[in-house]
Design a protein around this nucleic acid. Structure first.
Length: 676
RNA sequence: GCGCCCGUAGCUCAGUCCGGAUAGAGCGUUAGCCUCCGGAGCUAAAGGUCCCGCGUUCGAAUCGCGGCGGGCGCACCA
């Protein structure tokens, strides 16, 4: 049995047949023949409005042209018939029986792609607990990774740790000056006990403690401006290294990123490599990139003006940066320190294997524990996945080869579009135009709080979340780690778990084994969360609302899961009753047929999602598929159906749905519950 | 000021890339459907100046131009 042709392939061959016929009949060469899905299955499977285009030039009625074409076109393999519909549409119907038989046998397969893609996502500053904006980033990145893998690509997942930046410095300053932590040993105790000396422990763990402490540092800087020297002192200590403060920073960053890995792990997200900024510095990545850039003629040492003493990347000649007030980007400050963008250029060069220097690598062993997360809650396959980190002082000989990517995708929110453009431009001025073209910024809008969500936060978690009167008037407010304003990822997951446990409990008898119930409740919570973060277009601000996020009905993850579990129930019952399916025969009803077509369209849906970096289309496809199946389920009972050919067609539809729905939920990272 | 994004049903959003058949979904509202493969479901109704104007076109939510409203960016922060 040959592989089922993709709908895209059928579309292509029909388009070519139409083009040929048009050239033959009218001597017209069209650039592109549009083929779309008609609004109803009874109108056929592929429709072309091409006759409308030709009508004027040929001075003929569209219907007449369509009729001539229908007669002249030799339908390609897989297409059963061509006919005229409406005011002049040329509609094609596929050979339903042949397509269905093939699809029942083997899924449509996308064509594999060559070369490794490095996807960088998550990138949370390791100085506080993750919030729901970080979840959007991680879920988008993870689903991109899963989509690329489905399409046959090799992918490496990197999660960059800025362990030497301002944010870590601030929380370390808080530990030193507010928390009373003096030594690395005391920091380790504070981490292990989630407790500052002489204070009660934070029940939600060390990352939560840092969340509060970081906000307190922000307030202290405001209230007592003289304390702002703390930051510079800590940054300086981190930079010079080999001192107590820098060691504290290292253990804090490691502990907090370990907590992030646990939080992401509980929703099924894994990483291959954690590149650390400290290793980029210690491995002198910048020194190398600096030499390369100086040689390129685009990096200048300013000798006068407000940027005197700075090394700047000249962007004024690039059309992409036209119209900017200040078309230059400072990479080296006048005090000799380098900006984040400079490090990022060096890092991007390394990702493509263009820097000529490599990291050392060591295994990273996360605790799989973060506040409310326990290792048992993190799926076994996540815990089993090896995580590596970069190092500068010796490599594990078993480390795999990292970097040397064919393509690079950086998942970063839209506010960083400008520095991301500078990074690409950095590659371009170095003569790596092709690498620049193979670098993509996967930009997406932020998760913000609706004023209503902020009010609920204040009620649930405390008055410090109360918005100012000014902010109350806005359509939404940005979350802010510095202010401590935000919905923490683990808090939202806990609320989802509470909801799903209650639902699962109320739907099954007391006799049900509790272990399965907990597992199913987790699957449902994860499904609800991931779908909620995926269903919006990436350019939409998600104004977070608890009721919407906690909803399990309608356009939600659990709805998708329910449809899959339902299909599974049918096959269990069929087994119980000893009914066995034979290969389908007879004419395919319109609604069964359109469900098959939808189920078969995953390759083109995912291809397009990767091309446009718009993953919501995959989520919407899954929802539409679930909706079609639920309608089918109510209209076309299987177990009660006496007529064998009819029953066999329905069984075939249910089987294909189950296979393809499981596949798309896998791509979305939405687990399948045992029962619902 | 310049650049990018958003504006579609009471609310939250698809549809805009590549113009095409009656503009769709979910929530909410109203009215129905469990002796039935489990109702996290299904059926139906009500609900639309597709932000506004001009233009292109046989045809515009979709393309172009000009506005309006909201958000973000244009750091020796990231």
């Amino acid at each position: 049995m040959p592989e089922t042709p993709t709908l895209e392939a059928l579309r292509g061959s029909l388009a070519r047949a139409l083009e040929d016929a048009i050239r033959r009949l009218y001597g017209v060469a069209l650039e592109r023949v549009v083929l779309e899905r008609p609004p109803k299955a009874s109108l056929g499977d592929l429709a072309s409005p091409v006759a409308f285009d030709l009508a004027r030039a040929l001075k003929k009625a569209p219907r007449a042209i369509a009729a001539e074409l229908a007669a002249a076109v030799e339908p390609p393999r897989g297409v059963a018939s061509l006919r005229v519909e409406g005011g002049g549409y040329l509609n094609a119907s596929l050979d339903r029986e042949a397509f269905a038989a093939s699809l029942a046998e083997s899924p449509v397969a996308p064509s594999p792609r060559a070369g490794k893609t490095v996807v960088e996502h998550t990138n949370i500053n390791p100085n506080k607990a993750a919030h729901i904006g970080h979840l959007r980033n991680a879920v988008l990145g993870d689903v991109l990774v899963r989509t690329l893998r489905y399409l046959g690509g090799e992918v490496e997942v990197q999660n960059y740790l800025d362990d030497t930046g301002v944010q870590v410095a601030d929380v370390v300053a808080g530990l030193l000056h507010i928390g009373g932590v003096r030594t690395e040993a005391e920091a380790r105790t504070a981490i292990a006990e989630a407790r500052l000396p002489g204070q009660p422990a934070n029940a939600k763990g060390f990352a939560y403690l840092c969340w509060d402490l970081y906000a307190e540092v922000g307030r202290t800087y405001e209230a007592r401006p003289e304390t702002k020297t703390w930051r510079a002192e800590v940054l300086h200590a981190i930079e010079s290294g080999e001192n107590e403060t820098s060691r504290i920073a290292t253990v804090v960053a490691e502990a907090v990123s370990s907590a992030h890995l646990a939080t992401m792990g509980r929703i099924g997200i894994v990483y291959d490599l954690l590149p650390r900024e400290s290793d980029i510095l210690k491995r002198q990545f910048w020194a190398r990139a600096f030499e390369m850039l100086k040689g390129s003629g685009s990096l200048f040492l300013e000798t006068e003006g407000k940027h005197a003493g700075c090394w700047v990347l000249r962007l004024s000649e690039s059309p992409e940066f036209a119209g900017l007030e200040e078309p230059d980007k400072i990479l080296v400050r006048s005090n000799g320190t380098i900006t984040y963008t400079a490090k990022d250029i060096a890092y991007q060069l390394w990702k493509f294997g263009l820097l000529g220097i490599d990291f050392d690598y060591r295994r990273f062993a996360p605790s799989w524990r973060s506040g409310t997360v326990t290792p048992e809650e993190v799926p076994a396959e996540v815990r089993a996945h090896p995580v590596w980190r970069t190092a500068h002082d010796g490599s594990d000989p078993d480390a795999p080869a990292f970097g040397r990517a064919e393509r690079v995708v950086n998942v970063i929110d839209v506010r960083q579009s400008y520095p991301q453009k500078v990074v690409r431009e950095g590659l371009r001025v170095l003569g790596f135009a092709s690498a620049a073209d193979r670098s993509a910024h996967f930009s997406y809008e932020i998760v913000a709080l609706s004023p209503r969500a902020a009010r609920e936060l204040a009620e649930r978690f405390g008055e410090e979340y109360r918005l100012s009167a000014e902010d109350e008037k806005k359509p939404y407010v940005e979350m802010s780690g510095r202010k401590g304003l935000g919905v923490k990822a683990d808090d939202l997951i806990e609320l989802l778990l509470e909801r799903s446990r209650a639902e699962v409990q109320s739907r099954r008898g007391e006799d049900a084994p509790p272990g399965d119930a907990e597992e199913d409740a987790r699957a449902i919570a994860v499904g609800a969360l991931r779908y909620f973060l995926l269903k919006f277009g990436r350019n939409k601000v998600i104004a977070f609302d608890f009721d919407e996020a906690l909803n399990f009905e309608g356009d939600t993850g659990p709805y998708l899961q329910y449809s899959l579990v339902r299909a599974g129930n049918i096959f269990r019952k069929l087994d119980d009753k000893g009914i066995r399916a034979e290969s389908p025969s007879g004419a395919w009803e319109d609604d069964l047929w359109s469900l098959l077509l939808d189920a078969a369209s995953l390759p083109e849906i995912t291809e397009r999602a990767v091309e446009t970096l718009e993953l919501s289309t995959v989520a919407r496809h899954a929802f539409a598929l679930a909706q079609s199946f639920n309608q089918f389920y109510h209209r076309h009972p299987i177990l009660q159906e006496e007529d064998a050919p009819t029953r066999n067609r329905r069984i075939a539809v249910a089987r294909i749905f189950r296979r393809e729905m499981a596949r798309v939920l896998g791509i979305l990272g939405i687990p399948e519950p045992g029962r619902m």
